[in-house]
Computed example of a mutant assay.
Amino acid sequence: MKLRIATYNIHKGVTAFGRKTRIHELKEAIKTLDADIVFLQEVQGQHDHHAKRHDTWPSQAQHEFLAGDTHQCVYGMNAVYEHGHHGNALLSRLPIKTSTNRDISDHAYEQRGILHVVVQIAELEAHCFVIHLGLFAASRRRQVQALIQQIKEHVPPQSPLIIAGDFNDWSQRLSHTLYKELNVIEAFDSAPQLGIEQLAPKFKLRGIGLGQNAHARTFPAGLPWLSLDRIYLRGFKVEHARVMQGGSWKTLSDHVPLSVDLSLNRFDLITKHLG
């Protein structure tokens, strides 16, 4: 079975300091990704001030507005304040079976969570984790350990696994831990070995290295330089991986999204089950 997924930090659907709303343009842009599953970060569940300030502010929560009639949606509320809240969300064309949101806040100034959603893919249940890690390296290390523990306790080794989101890991120090503990691949690290070597020159011109431990660069959107956004996989084969740069993507958020085409690697899943 073929599957397209995407991950995107949407910056709460507004420009800096909330001067202008971008949520309608974001909805149209996300539609063009044509993704079966979309992992979203910085999703505004409620913001009373923006709702009063902007005439076009949606009456729905952003995850519901972005899902529209084509996708189911799940929201994990993380940061709560007097006038609203925001967090992570997942949009899915495929049936959503269950969802949980776990608080992994490391201190009072950064409220973070892990949104765990089980999605039905053919006859299998795929475990999807939406991540937005902290700004401090020590926090990120502890939050990744919490993620690893949660996956080891709640995800069967034979189940497909997708972890995607904003890792804030500009030094690229977390991948080795995830590779070792969870036996995952990262979508762009694996790209040359999985049939898209012909894209390498194009990506290098854009400043995006391919190959081991060379993740896609997604921040800042105007001239992506830092590798903050990732997609880690287990039980899938990467068919095609893209960074959505240029055009309107430069101004819709402070990040650009990643889009990856996948197929289920049933041999890999069977091997893990037997092992």
Rank of each mutant, 00 (worst) to 15 (best):
I196R: 02
E197D: 15
E197P: 12
Q198I: 10
Q198F: 11
Q198A: 14
Q198K: 14
L199R: 08
L199D: 12
A200R: 01
A200T: 15
P201N: 05
F203H: 03
K204D: 12
L205G: 14
R206H: 15
I208V: 07
I208N: 03
I208H: 00
I208T: 01
G209V: 00
L210Y: 06
L210W: 04
N213I: 04
N213R: 06
N213M: 10
N213E: 04
N213V: 04
A214G: 04
A216M: 04
R217V: 10
F219W: 07
F219Y: 07
F219P: 05
F219M: 06
A221D: 04
G222N: 13
G222K: 06
L223V: 08
W225Q: 06
W225C: 07
L226S: 11
L226M: 12
S227F: 10
S227D: 03
S227R: 02
L228C: 01
L228F: 11
D229V: 08
I231V: 05
Y232H: 07
Y232P: 01
Y232I: 04
L233K: 07
R234A: 02
G235T: 08
F236C: 00
K237F: 09
K237T: 13
E239K: 15
E239C: 15
E239Y: 15
H240F: 13
A241W: 07
A241F: 07
A241S: 14
R242H: 15
M244S: 10
Q245G: 12
G246I: 14
G246T: 15
K250H: 11
K250P: 07
T251K: 08
L252F: 09
S253K: 01
D254Y: 04
D254S: 09
D254M: 03
H255T: 01
V256T: 14
P257I: 12
S259K: 13
S259T: 06
D261C: 08
D261G: 08
L264F: 01
L264I: 10
N265P: 13
R266M: 10
F267W: 02
F267Y: 10
D268K: 12
